[in-house]
Design a protein around this nucleic acid. Structure first.
Length: 821
RNA sequence: GCGGGUGUGGCGGAAUUGGCAGACGCACUAGACUUAGGAUCUAGCGCCUCUGGCGUGGGGGUUCGAGUCCCUCCACCCGCACCA
């Protein structure tokens, strides 16, 4: 028997599939249902693929192949998220050309992907750094601009000193840069933003349209958007000619409990309020200090609250009473109006602050079934209740009062109901070279002018200096100096490039029409495939890529470019790959190289191990002996097929009626049923593999003298069931069995329900809930008959000796429980 | 602090609807074959004081019956965290 040598087989089949263009996306196949299988495309780093990629692609490829065999027309594309900092850093450090560097990495990644035997439609490959692609990224930017969704504004933005660029809020984690972990600073800069906040409500609401998304991810997005309903309340400041200061509160029902206002140190009114006040100097230095603090030391929950009384007073909008105005570090300019009303009796933070500075505490809510706390409060009462000390609203329930007080404020022109969000607009400018140029020109006479779409792409210039000191684009005179598209006069180009998350916010749409030279994609083509039916990728993108892509899809929907309002019907988070319980990393020296594994065992073994070793959303601890086991299994299948090769000559499959053949036939159909459900519905790939292993074990122990036709049938179906998991070995075996065509074009087996029926079943006999005996009964027997048969058995009689039977519970096909004393 | 999740043999993990816990694999043990075995095959493999008892993080409950449902406690993981 010939040995199983994956290093011979795998390249052979990869070449054949490639030459035949076997996985090209079907076009004009109207009768088949569509399926869009997608895995997050990789950043083409110089390192090549890591095991996380292999896991992601193995799962996606299994699903794509499975759906094809199940009669779907499948689109399964791949590309590269090719803009980004590492290419530019390589340019700075090693003088390499970022474009060449990236293109060669892309090539390397593609070769490695090819070695995995993934069924991609390579004709649809897109690289976001190519002018053919980024031309339309620019086109989309202009679309956003036309629709009023892209704007330039000056403000305090996140600046990463290490990456030498600004960052979006989503890209700051715990006050640190998501990429390089440096502490992020604040800088006042004029930058481009996308108005994602305009879509905040829809981004929250439409999460309910995504039942197949993990709850955890939806919660993270909800938290990130941070929608909260409340009211804006405007206080007036008599000493500033009744200038108004607005606060946002979710608890307008506590308005009569306000004992002070607090402004964020950055609040624009602060300057006017402190002028000439006794502690002006102290406040100024406090503000300076606070502004210099990092995000983390400023906003941590454990950070001490500090503040100063400005000495100014505001007038309460309903009572007309005077309330002092303070400035404190715990109020953030970023959220709400940058000012809050202090209600110490009913807010923990306010309580702590008031306690610390001796500010008055007024109780205005008492618990519904209790008394208001008398005397000194120990802590704030933050629950709902009944209003007291609240003038005309006394006795009203707080839930009702929220609306009533907001309405009263509205009537008097002193406030309104409003919604506040934690989500900020998406800052997309990056002061870096290796990204998509923002297609905008600044003209002294015309101002900000968009580059006309027909002049796209605004290409990245090559005559730039990479010195690591400034944005390289600013060093290219040929790029910066241009003519105004509007008046033809001299003008200068925007030198910022776009956040690379923009590139990846629409690539799944480009795949549907990747060669379009007129527009990003054709609506008819996009609608044929969108939304993505199954999207696999790391959960680290829960509020980055996944939120941005949802935003983009909604905008493009509104622009009439695509019917879908959500890009990803089903997002499946990928579990991490670990080694010895830790994330693989060079510093720990526990990295397992995918290509070395393929060299040694082949791609099929790598894929099988990865799919088998852990449930797909759980962590997967790499195990060398586990890989050996998967390789052993494939060898076992290889030998099995070869040993019985001669059986495969036009055997008509029949449903055997008795004996070992019947049992094997039943096992086969149980397995078909289980694998179909596990891969198609449950997405439990590990149990699907174990079911096939059980089938192979069953075939192995099939008696020599039993029916050969059934054996041949079982072996053939085993190979077909394995095909989407391990495409190379199964294709080889298929041909060695003398079959025509590709195994991957075979229809997926359907189970025979009748084959599952057993004439007799073994059931457990429990006495008082403990299994004491096994009994074989006719499968069709009803409860009475089962009870009768079991009770009549000698063993059961012995066990029950000296006991009184109280009750007998029969679960047909499973067990009998005899309750006896 | 708030929200979500997880906890099952030596290890990875099964158990889909409350019904035989530990499927499948790894590791391990013994045997067969063999010049050899890190190949292959056969058998075994939760724990213990072993004709029996115990056992799904601990304790309690519901039930004829609980890994699964309820209460409570513990441990670990993830997300959010002065968001007014």
């Amino acid at each position: 028997m010939e040995k199983y040598v994956p290093s011979d087989l795998e390249p052979k089949w990869q070449k054949i599939w490639n030459d035949r263009n076997a996985y090209r996306t079907p076009e004009n196949e109207k009768e088949k249902p569509k399926f869009y299988a997608l895995e997050m495309f990789p950043y083409p780093s110089g390192e090549g693929l890591h095991m996380g990629h292999v896991r992601n692609y193995s799962m996606g490829d299994l699903v794509a192949r499975f759906k094809r065999m199940n009669g779907y027309k499948v689109i399964h594309p791949m590309g590269a998220d090719a803009f980004g900092l590492p290419a530019e850093n390589a340019a700075i450090q090693r003088g390499v050309n970022p474009r060449k560097w990236t293109l060669s990495n892309m090539e390397k990644i593609r070769e490695e992907q090819a070695r995995l035997g993934l069924s991609y439609d390579w004709d649809r490959y897109v690289g976001t750094c190519t002018p053919e692609y980024y031309r339309f990224t620019q086109w989309l930017f202009l679309l956003f601009y036309e629709r009023g969704l892209a704007y330039r504004e000056k403000g305090a933005v996140n600046w990463c000193p290490d990456c030498q660029t600004v960052l979006a809020n989503e890209q700051v984690e715990d006050g640190r840069c998501w990429r390089c972990d440096s502490t992020v600073e604040k800088k006042d800069l004029e930058q481009w933003f996308l108005r994602i906040t305009e879509y905040a409500d829809r981004l929250v609401e439409d999460l309910d349209r995504l039942p197949k998304w993990p709850e955890q991810v939806k919660t993270m997005q909800r938290n990130w958007i941070g929608r909260s309903e409340g009211a804006e309340v405007r206080f007036t400041i008599p000493e500033l000619d009744d200038e108004e200061v607005a606060v946002f509160t979710t608890r307008p029902d506590t308005l009569f409990g306000v004992s002070y206002l607090v402004l964020a140190p950055e609040h624009p009114l602060v300057e006017k309020l402190i002028q000439g006040k006794p502690n002006e100097a102290a406040i100024r230095s406090f503000i300076r200090e606070t502004k210099n603090q990092s995000e983390r030391s400023r906003t941590g929950a454990d950070v001490e609250k500090t503040g100063f009384d400005t000495g100014a007073k505001a007038k309460h909008p309903l009572t007309g009473g005077e309330v002092p105005i303070w400035v404190a570090n715990y109020v953030l300019m970023d959220y709400g109006t940058g000012a809050v009303m202090g209600v110490p009796a009913h807010d923990e933070r306010d309580f702590q602050f008031a306690d610390q500075y001796g500010l008055p505490i007024r109780t205005v809510i008492r618990p519904r079934d209790g008394e208001a706390t008398e005397g000194e409060l120990r802590e704030a009462y933050t629950g709902e209740g009944v209003l007291i000390n609240s003038g005309p609203f006394d006795g009203m329930d707080s839930r009702e009062a929220i609306g009533a007080i907001a309405d009263r404020l509205a009537e008097e022109g002193k406030g309104k109901k409003t919604v506040s969000y934690r989500l900020r607009d998406w800052l997309i400018s990056r002061q870096r070279y290796w990204g998509c140029p923002i297609p905008i020109v600044y003209c002294d006479s015309c101002g900000t002018v968009p580059v006309p779409k027909e002049e796209l792409p605004v290409k990245l210039p090559e005559d730039v200096v990479f010195d690591g000191k400034r944005n390289p684009l600013t060093t290219s005179e040929s790029f910066v100096k241009t003519r105004c598209p509007s008046c033809g006069g001299p003008a200068r180009r925007e030198t910022d490039t776009m956040d690379t998350f923009i590139d990846s916010s629409w690539y799944f749409l480009r795949y549907t029409d990747p060669h379009n030279t007129e527009k990003p994609f054709d609506a008819v083509k996009a609608n044929e495939w969108m939304p993505v039916d199954h999207y696999i990728g790391g959960i680290e993108h829960a509020v980055l890529h996944l939120l941005y892509s949802r935003f983009f899809t909604k905008v493009l929907h509104d622009a009439g470019m695509v019917d879908a309002v959500e890009p990803f019907e089903h997002y499946f988070p990928l579990g991490m790959v670990l080694k010895d319980g830790a994330k693989m990393s060079k510093s720990k020296g526990n990295v397992v190289s995918p290509m070395e594994i393929i060299d040694r065992y082949g791609a099929d073994t790598a894929r099988l191990f990865i799919l088998f070793a852990a449930p797909p959303d759980g962590e997967l601890d790499w195990s060398d002996s586990g890989v050996e086991g998967s390789f052993r299994f494939l060898n076992r299948v290889w030998r099995l097929v070869h040993r019985h090769k001669d059986l495969f000559r036009d055997r008509p499959p029949a449903r055997p009626e008795k004996g070992a053949a019947k049992d094997l036939y039943r096992l086969l159909h149980q397995t078909i049923k289980k694998v179909t459900a596990d891969v198609g519905d449950r997405l439990q790939f590990n149990t699907a593999v174990s079911a096939i292993m059980e089938l192979v074990n069953g075939i192995h122990s099939y008696p020599k003298e039993a029916d050969r036709g059934t054996l041949a049938e079982a072996i053939e179906k085993t190979v077909i069931l394995l095909a989407p998991f391990v495409p190379h070995i199964t294709e080889e075996l298929w041909h060695r069995l003398g079959r025509e065509g590709s195994i991957h074009e075979q229809p997926w087996p359907r189970h025979d329900e009748k084959a599952l029926v057993q004439s007799e079943v073994e059931i457990a006999v429990q006495i008082n809930g403990k299994v004491r005996h096994k009994s074989v009964v006719p499968a069709r027997a009803d409860k009475e008959e089962v009870e009768e048969r079991v009770m009549a058995e000698d063993k059961v009689k012995n066990l029950l000796e000296g006991k009184t039977v109280r009750k007998v519970i029969v679960v047909p096909g499973k067990l009998v429980n005899i309750v006896a004393k």
